[in-house]
Lab assay of single mutants.
Amino acid sequence: GTLHLNGVTVKVPSLEKAIKAAKKFAKKYNLEVQVHGNTVHVH
């Protein structure tokens, strides 16, 4: 999967790991997580 954090793109081995990391990051910075196919966006 691919993880987008505020314009930074990170390749992640699995989508589940990407979503987990995204949710952790989003919670910390009070951001929103959106999943588009195998790409996770945090903004």
Rank of each mutant, 00 (worst) to 15 (best):
H43D: 04
F25K: 01
G1D: 07
K24T: 06
L3D: 01
N30F: 11
V10I: 15
V40T: 02
L31T: 01
H43R: 11
H36I: 15
S14G: 04
P13I: 13
T9D: 05
L5C: 15
V33Y: 05
V10N: 03
K24M: 10
T2W: 15
H41K: 08
V42F: 13
L3H: 03
V8D: 03
G37M: 05
T39G: 04
T39W: 10
T39R: 09
V10L: 12
A18W: 09
L31I: 05
V40Q: 02
K28P: 00
A26E: 00
A22F: 13
N38D: 06
I19D: 00
A22S: 01
L31G: 03
K20A: 13
A22K: 01
H36M: 12
H4M: 11
E32I: 14
V35Y: 05
V35W: 08
P13G: 12
A22W: 12
K24Q: 09
S14F: 09
G7S: 06
K27N: 04
V40I: 13
G1F: 15
H36Y: 10
H4I: 15
H4V: 14
P13N: 12
L3V: 08
L31F: 07
V10K: 05
A22I: 15
N30Q: 07
N6W: 15
V33A: 01
L3M: 08
P13H: 11
L15Y: 04
L31Y: 05
L3F: 03
G1E: 08
Y29A: 02
T2Y: 15
G7A: 06
K27T: 06
K27P: 01
K27S: 06
K17D: 11
V10T: 05
A22M: 13
K20V: 08
A18G: 02
V10G: 02
A21E: 06
V10H: 07
N38Y: 09
V35S: 01
S14P: 03
H36W: 09
V33S: 01
V42A: 04
A21P: 00
H41C: 14
K27H: 04
N38S: 08
V42R: 04
N6A: 10
L15I: 10
V42T: 03
V8A: 07
H41R: 13
V33E: 00
F25A: 03
V35R: 03
Q34G: 05
N30V: 07
K17W: 14
H4L: 11
S14L: 06
Q34H: 15
Y29K: 01
K23I: 14
N30W: 11
V42G: 02
H36F: 10
A21H: 05
V12S: 03
S14V: 04
V40N: 02
L31M: 11
Q34K: 11
I19C: 06
A26Q: 03
N6Y: 12
N6S: 07
L15P: 01
K23M: 13
K11R: 13
A18N: 00
V35A: 04
G1R: 05
K28N: 04
V12I: 08
L5V: 10
S14T: 09
K20T: 09
Y29I: 03
K11Q: 10
A18C: 14
V12P: 03
A18P: 00
H41T: 14
H43G: 10
G7W: 12
L5F: 15
H4G: 04
V40M: 04
T39H: 15
V40G: 02
K24G: 04
E16V: 12
L15V: 07
L31Q: 03
F25M: 05
G7V: 08
A21W: 15
V10R: 07
K27F: 04
K27L: 06
E16M: 10
P13F: 09
Y29D: 00
T9Y: 13
L15M: 07
L31N: 02
V33F: 11
V12G: 02
T9R: 10
A22N: 00
K23N: 06
V40W: 03
N38H: 08
T2S: 08
V35N: 01
G37A: 05
S14I: 07
E16H: 12
H36A: 08
A21T: 05
T9A: 10
A18K: 01
L15E: 00
Y29Q: 01
V8S: 05
N6M: 14
K20Y: 07
H43M: 11
V10A: 04
N38G: 05
V33L: 08
K28A: 06
K24L: 10
A26K: 04
Y29M: 03
T39Q: 11
V12N: 04
A18E: 00
K11D: 07
F25H: 01
V8I: 13
N38W: 15
L15K: 01
Y29V: 03
F25T: 00
